[in-house]
């Protein structure tokens, strides 16, 4: 959970989201454009088809949960968004901009808008937590050490890991590594954040903390995100809880109910490179599809 000091960071991060600030509203990205769009994307490695005609859209401020078994094409989708892979056919758009044929150099500009949280954190072993989080700033040529430290501390506070400032990655637990990975991904306040199985192998409380960070980004930062997972607990948290701030500035996580229904989280389910479901978690749970029911319950549904 997060301390009351969180609100200071949220204030910082939320500056550009203040609804009454007309100037900021003008600077905000065009909400009519999708944050991410896949149009009939195909990809195969030799004879193995990884993605077979995948099309979907992630709206601004929306979280798309991608579910599916290992090898179903979930992580590949994320790598395509970052331009780490190129599709065989189809188009990929970020902020309405077709990036499919972009060169590595052109992709560098696009990647500035995207934060990526890798499965195991993918922290640089030879760099301290501070240097890992500061990495993007250094690559962008920020040389003012005070500015770098301020930003790193802000991000580490956001993931509640300010104490780990000077530690090396091998001194951190699995959950801490993921949180440092999230802090590193959020440097530069990206409009899009991609989570590639960030809770894999973590204990339930730590996994919940990671999910709460994603919820906080979605509801308080207006960040568009893709959250790849094969764990149903993540689906439960992300599709039924929302973050809000009380009068004291404390971040609260509440469950959706009769007064509020979350519409900014949708589910995609992949099977063998194809999307077999797209919609809300309620529709997913009530689906008659045997594969989906087996995935949700861990066993085949009993016949009536």
């Amino acid at each position: 959970m997060f301390s009351s000091a969180d609100i200071d960071i949220l204030d910082d991060l939320d500056e550009h989201l203040e609804p009454t600030d007309l100037e900021d509203a003008v600077d905000r990205p065009d909400r009519t454009l999708s944050a991410i769009e896949f149009r009939d994307v195909h990809l195969a490695f030799d004879d193995k088809v990884v993605l077979d005609g995948v099309s979907f859209t992630v709206r601004r401020g929306e979280t798309k949960l991608i579910l599916g078994r290992s090898g179903g094409g979930k992580s590949t989708t994320i790598r395509l968004i970052l331009g780490l892979l190129k599709p065989d056919s189809g188009r990929i758009l970020i902020d309405g901009e077709d990036i499919t044929d972009y060169t590595e150099e052109e992709m560098m500009e696009v990647r500035k808008k995207i934060g990526m949280v890798f499965q195991e954190g993918a922290l640089f072993d030879s760099l301290s937590v501070y240097e890992n989080v500061a990495y993007r700033l250094r690559e962008q040529g920020v040389i003012d050490e005070e500015e770098v430290e301020q930003e790193v501390r802000r991000m580490l506070r956001f993931v509640d890991l300010e104490d780990a400032f000077d530690k090396m990655p091998d001194e951190l637990s699995g959950g801490m590594r993921r949180r440092v990975g999230i802090a590193r991904a959020l440097v530069g306040d990206p409009e899009i954040v991609l989570f590639d199985e960030p809770t894999a192998g973590l204990d339930p409380p730590t996994a919940r903390t990671i999910c709460q960070l994603a919820i906080k980004l979605r509801d308080l930062q207006d960040v568009s995100s893709i959250f790849v997972t094969h764990e149903m607990n993540n689906l439960k948290f992300l599709s039924s809880e929302y973050a809000t701030v009380d009068r004291e500035g404390q971040v609260l996580y509440e469950k959706e109910g009769e007064t509020l229904c979350l519409i900014n989280t949708e589910v995609l389910m992949f099977r063998d490179g194809k999307i077999i479901f797209s919609g809300s978690d309620e529709r997913l749970r009530s689906s008659d599809d045997e594969y989906i029911q087996t995935f949700i319950h861990g066993h085949k549904p009993k016949s009536p």
Binding site: L84, I114, M116, A122
Partner: peptide, 14 residues
């Protein structure tokens, strides 16, 4: 294998 190269590219380094 630990995805650090991917992370490097994602963070804007060649």
């Amino acid at each position: 294998v630990s995805q650090q190269i991917d992370a490097m590219r994602a963070l804007g380094s060649d």
